[in-house]
Amino acid sequence: MTTLKQNRKKLNEALEDKALTLLLISDDIGTQAEEVHDAADELLKSGQEVFLITDLDVLTPTEKKHWFEEGGHYVVVGGRNRVVAIRGMLTDLFLSAVPPATTGEPSPIEIRAVLARGDLLP
């Protein structure tokens, strides 16, 4: 589990390593970001890493612009050029809720699919 609060040293190392595919998740109250992070952590294959970013101030303005500027989002970064493969809202990585629940569960298939898109980057 890698959670970034105020220190982004691990994120810098991961970004420098061009072999890695990174799933970055922005945390916010009520977004179940931690559940997605934990589910992804169990699904990672070789060369894949997941980060939960609880304090968006650790990101540079460019990173905020290209990745996310608020909580409840995800982005997959990879390839030799460290570009965005796919990004979206965390709800995209959930299965629809079964009533009476209002929020569903993280979908391993959706999480694996976005990570695989990162692996496809040249």
Partner: peptide, 25 residues
């Protein structure tokens, strides 16, 4: 490694994308 990772990603999506389309999350 990147070449194999790329092939692995393509093979994984070949399996996952039909599932995602047949039964949208």
């Amino acid at each position: 490694f990147l070449a194999l990772k790329n092939q692995r990603g393509a093979a994984e999506l070949a399996m996952l994308d039909p599932i995602r389309n047949l039964w949208p999350a």
